[in-house]
């Protein structure tokens, strides 16, 4: 008993009789662990890791590609927008020009009509004036003849007419 207790108080690690057993089972365990690792674990983990790396790389490439595509689409959209704007501007300009032309034509036509009407009116006025002048002349002849006869002298109708015409000439 005493012998046992001193043995327990010492280091069991230095009990060399246990060494062959420990070394044998250690080697068995190491070989098993080595086989587990090289046959199963390490190839699998390596393939998982490289697969993940591959997935990440290809995903990044795909993302890059999509970004490129999005940029292209944006450029196309911008282009379409610019085209539409230019087209709209062109249409506006064309329409404006058309309207202007029509307007000009109408104005011209109206001007021509106005001019024609004015000429017509002027002609009518001139006619009226002339007829009025004639009437005035007649009246003046008559009045002058009456005045002359009232004064007691006989006057030649021709002479009176000439005299009145001479007087009226100044009035035009």
């Amino acid at each position: 008993m005493a012998e046992h207790s001193t043995e327990a108080a010492g280091m069991p690690q230095l009990d060399f009789s246990a060494y062959p057993n420990l070394i044998f089972w250690l080697l068995v365990t190491l070989v098993i662990v080595y086989l587990i690792l090289t046959r199963l674990a390490l190839p699998r983990i390596a393939s998982v890791l490289s697969e993940r790396q591959g997935t990440i790389t290809s995903d990044l490439a795909a993302a890059e590609e999509l970004k490129e595509k999005a940029k292209e689409a944006e450029a196309a959209y911008d282009q379409a927008l610019a085209d539409a704007r230019a087209q709209a501007q062109e249409i506006v300009a064309r329409t404006k020009a058309g309207i202007q032309k029509e307007l000009d034509e109408a104005v011209q036509k109206a001007d021509a009509e106005i001019a024609a009407r004015t000429a017509e009116s002027e002609k009518a006025i001139a006619e009226i004036r002339r007829s009025a002048m004639d009437s005035v002349k007649d009246v003046a002849n008559d009045v002058a003849g009456e005045i002359v006869s009232a004064l007691g002298t006989r006057a030649d109708a021709k002479a009176i007419k000439a005299a009145v015409a001479a007087q009226l000439k100044g009035l035009g």
Binding site: S17, L22, V33
Partner: peptide, 26 residues
Amino acid sequence: TIHWYTPTNATLWMAIAALVILFLLV
């Protein structure tokens, strides 16, 4: 008696270690 082949507590816990490695990595 502990012969070189006797399964001991060390054997048990080293076997458990191998099993744990199997579970973790495989």
